[in-house]
Simulated scan of single mutants.
Amino acid sequence: MPALPKFLAALLLTLNLSAYAADACPPNTPTPTPEQIAAAAANARDHGLLWRVSKGGRSAYLYGTVHVGKLDWALPGPALNKAWEDTDTLAVELDISDAQTIRALTQDAPKLAHPLDAATQARLDAQLRAACLPPQALAALHPLMQVSTLAMLAGRWDELDAGYAQEAMLLTRARAEERRVVALETAQEQLAALIPRDPKDVRRGIDDGLDQLEREQVRAPMLKLAQAWADSDLPLLQHYEDWCDCVHDEADRRYLHGLLEKRNPKMAERFVALHATGKRVLVAIGALHMIGPTGLPALLKKMGFTVERLVPAESP
């Protein structure tokens, strides 16, 4: 299954998952104590991917994130802290703290869905039970988004929690400090990337996602992606398509292209427009939007920006 949109992390935070914990359920991440938070902050190091981009005498930063995390990954390291201090605006894919955005995702998206047949609904209900969620916990979401959310929740078995996703943490910090937050996409644009227009492709995506959940094939690539991000392993991330177990035919390849590379030029254009206003911007979006010749750093370099990779550091 491809990397998942960031807004799903915010939606998961609205669920009281601890109410459904049981021996057969994925473990819930305990609330950290003040001492644990202090220790994590004292030992924080940089994770993910970070670039500085400059043009017109001003610099901005591009930070590649993932949709799940751990406490030890959640607090920013020195390079990301420096980027935060050097900027005044946080740019994200979607502002998942914005009520209108959440409303669009939970009210508009289900309208795009066709009713599921009884057999498929039964399979989906079974996965909700396996995740220890009540039957209606994800009912506000499009069925394809429900499957994606269940895939994300499977990360709990490996101590991967959407609440510790770096982009969500940065949004929380921005709101606390009353920092300007800008979305590089609209909810409608992200839904268009996530949900195919052809109902047959939607059904195929739901079936494939349920197959992977039933065969327990979701956790390994998710853990590999998260660990590659935590280790700032750029070469491994650059070959994501080779090991993600999400591209089995040309249809899968087209879907992944629409979910990742196809969205990058528009986000790059909106960043450039924002940079031109004089704002000092920290862009925090999915790490897979940053890699290769179609990633944001490469696109901005073609648009006249000087691009310097900070994490992992450039080789001499």
Score class of each variant (00 low, 15 high):
263 R>Q: 09
39 A>G: 07
122 A>F: 09
255 Y>M: 08
122 A>Y: 12
208 D>G: 04
229 W>N: 02
251 A>K: 07
270 R>G: 02
233 D>A: 06
94 L>S: 02
17 L>N: 01
72 D>S: 10
194 L>C: 08
243 W>S: 04
54 S>T: 14
204 R>E: 13
50 L>W: 09
164 Y>K: 06
173 R>W: 14
309 R>W: 09
224 K>G: 13
255 Y>Q: 05
101 T>C: 14
25 C>F: 13
306 T>K: 14
237 L>A: 03
92 V>F: 07
65 T>Q: 11
42 A>H: 12
78 P>M: 10
190 Q>D: 02
105 L>T: 05
115 P>H: 06
23 D>P: 08
4 L>S: 09
299 L>S: 01
114 H>T: 08
104 A>T: 15
67 H>G: 03
201 D>R: 11
221 P>I: 04
239 H>L: 07
271 F>T: 00
267 M>L: 14
35 E>A: 15
175 R>V: 09
147 V>C: 03
166 Q>D: 05
137 A>C: 09
76 P>R: 01
136 Q>N: 15
302 K>P: 03
195 I>H: 02
293 P>K: 11
133 L>V: 10
80 L>I: 01
132 C>V: 09
26 P>W: 02
205 G>D: 12
252 D>F: 08
134 P>Y: 10
111 K>S: 11
306 T>I: 09
39 A>Y: 05
60 A>V: 03
262 K>Y: 07
221 P>F: 07
230 A>M: 12
311 V>C: 08
56 G>Y: 10
65 T>A: 07
75 L>Y: 04
308 E>H: 12
311 V>E: 00
71 L>Y: 02
69 G>K: 00
2 P>S: 12
13 L>R: 13
10 A>N: 06
218 V>M: 03
